[in-house]
Amino acid sequence: MSWMVWTLPTAIFFATIATLLAGMTAWEVVSPSVERKGFLPIATTRGDRLFIGLLSAAYLHLVVVGFTPLSIWLALGVSVLWMLVLMRWG
């Protein structure tokens, strides 16, 4: 695996994503998702909301890191909050 030049932060990142995906699968098996409409303009399933959350989190991180002097941890915090809001009311 040394050719993949792992670092601790990226390992944690991918472990989190993998855990999320596994968790979502388990959740789906236990109680299948029903498509519904929240504050987003489109009807979404849980998986859709997770995808939207992750993608917008990625863009938020890029904007914060690239164009503002703010800390990346702020972006992470806001992203986690945003993800929770999105999953619950999105």
Partner: peptide
């Protein structure tokens, strides 16, 4: 796996292994 490797590369300055 290649994409994951790219992510790993993107946070490092890699000269060799």
């Amino acid at each position: 796996i290649p994409l994951m490797t790219v992510v790993n590369y993107s946070v490092q300055d890699v000269f060799d292994a």
